[in-house]
Design a protein around this nucleic acid. Sequence first.
DNA 1: AATGAATGAGTCTTCATTCAT
DNA 2: TATGAATGAAGACTCATTCAT
Lengths: 195, 195, 195, 195
Amino acid sequence: MAREKDENKRIAVLQSSKLLFSSKGFMNTSIADIVRETGMSVGTIYTYFKSKDEIVRAIVEEGWSSLYSRIEAAMAGAQSVQDKLKLLIGGFFPELLQDLPLIHILLSEAIDYTRLEEKVERITDLVFTLLKSDRAGAEGWPGVSRQMLRTGLIVIFLGVLNAVKIARRSSLGIRSEDILGFVEFMARGSLGVQL
Amino acid sequence: MAREKDENKRIAVLQSSKLLFSSKGFMNTSIADIVRETGMSVGTIYTYFKSKDEIVRAIVEEGWSSLYSRIEAAMAGAQSVQDKLKLLIGGFFPELLQDLPLIHILLSEAIDYTRLEEKVERITDLVFTLLKSDRAGAEGWPGVSRQMLRTGLIVIFLGVLNAVKIARRSSLGIRSEDILGFVEFMARGSLGVQL
Amino acid sequence: MAREKDENKRIAVLQSSKLLFSSKGFMNTSIADIVRETGMSVGTIYTYFKSKDEIVRAIVEEGWSSLYSRIEAAMAGAQSVQDKLKLLIGGFFPELLQDLPLIHILLSEAIDYTRLEEKVERITDLVFTLLKSDRAGAEGWPGVSRQMLRTGLIVIFLGVLNAVKIARRSSLGIRSEDILGFVEFMARGSLGVQL
Amino acid sequence: MAREKDENKRIAVLQSSKLLFSSKGFMNTSIADIVRETGMSVGTIYTYFKSKDEIVRAIVEEGWSSLYSRIEAAMAGAQSVQDKLKLLIGGFFPELLQDLPLIHILLSEAIDYTRLEEKVERITDLVFTLLKSDRAGAEGWPGVSRQMLRTGLIVIFLGVLNAVKIARRSSLGIRSEDILGFVEFMARGSLGVQL
DNA sequence: AATGAATGAGTCTTCATTCAT
DNA sequence: TATGAATGAAGACTCATTCAT
């Protein structure tokens, strides 16, 4: 009856659903599955969420913004652009990569409720801005237009997510360290950014 | 004799389904949709395909292998490793990127019938092998293990596909040229490969 | 709390289905028929039964065991073997013969869900045992092996069921009294058992 | 094109269908099954039979009447009523029991096309008539009305068929010899007929 | 607020039959 | 006559959502 109790239920639904959606897929997860997993009744689930769609949306939106606001807070304390970039690569990314279920859902077919584009734009914009100010006043990178760089960041970001997603299925061992290592290698070699 | 099985019909089913699957998703496309789109009867669809799954599988497998065998043929005629790499980046990739519906399906939740991992492994293996022989006898790339390189190629490949997939939805203009341009920029800057 | 699962509905489904199955046959009865007959919705039927098979199984199993346990209870109170036999012939049989729909289903093609063999074996075993103890220590019946007697009981039992089943269709009037009368006549004449 | 060739095809369809119907049941056998089994085309099957129903009907009708006319011919040559009865029990019955597939179909759910009642009536009438003339002018059997006797014969006949049908499924060994042996035992003991 | 039975549109698939070749 | 592709009604079952209790 108290608000706290309610909030706990909401979170429980979110957690169970997240796991289910990420492992079986959104469409292959039924409300009945969530009921089974949470131990709640159908009705209860519908008092916390208007629909199944609503649940994915909440998982993604809340998962993402929690991650995002944490990194923003951390970056606010950073002095140099370099430090900020380091925080991103060393903080945000690894944390995101940790959250496999979120990644799965983000890339899933339920993309309509997921608005991946928005997230991609926001995060790559951030990196883009940082990179630009790192080279403020300077020449940028020869042969690379702004648009191309921006696009490149999107490629890398999505590539990382997708590689992590696929890692489990692939027989070739894809490891997070290698993924991040490669990103750093690229950043250094191509953009001259030391992370 | 009776009417012969009509290859054109098979292809029509494949084409309609491809468009439907790629725009609405595999699970959100019903056989009824395909019936409507092709103008055929349910029964006819089932004389050409054993099941709905079978249809995606055919779309992906045939789409991919046609692409792949074309590039193999082209590469067979190439002399140097450099040329082969160029063919890949300048031939296979752009062609693949053209086939948006295929990319959508490849990355979709119907991944079980799609075996994306296999395709990723095969194509990145190819690139990996080429890169290695480009540096045959030499030192490779300092600070980059083989595994990391391999993983990196996967990241790039998947990133490219996903960026293309998202392009339509994103308001920021993602263009194929930029994507490829960036890949080349990376290849040059980080791997020292001129494409 | 929500509405409770309503035993009456379960029974209503069972009753309607029993009639439908027995008159049109199991395979020729569709869930839609049951829906029409019960006035319930498809979904409701499926909240009470997992599948169509489940429905026949329940009809047969519950119908049979109710019959069987009633006769067992009655026979428990009987003193002599003679009395027990009389109860069987005069109690169980007539009651079973009353339940035409059950007989129809029991003999129907849905035999896989029906396990008629089991029922036949059980009931004929019972009779067999009674007959044996009726003649305990004595010579049995000359020229009739145990196996033959057992088989004979099966023949009679199945014959009775089938005759009842066919009665409705046959223009020659087959009446239950005659069927039972004949069985008694046989029992007396061939086995020397007075019923 | 010659008539002979056609008749062979007709028979082939009948034979294959008989086996299929008897083992899988009428409803569970598809025209496609028959096509597979006969090696003919759907169209061809439909030039010999107007419908699936038609096929069962032909199987039953032709199977039965061939059996029946053979026994009639044999009985025509018999002198005494006794001999005729012996021919029935020793000739017709065993032959019928041999034809398991026919029995299965006769008792199957496709009973609508099968007209089992007719066959039952005809054969039991025959036996009834013979029994009557065996006792012509005499007292018949005390305590057994004509109707009851007639009904009894039906019971026995159907019981025999059904027992044979069930034999395969039952774990208790039901053997044809025992079935026939029991019938003779009954005939002797209850009706005083020596077979 | 919590419950879970009720609902019925929608899913994929099968199959007897027809008919163009 | 033979063939088998074409047809589409019908089948069993699922599941997000509602609503009586």
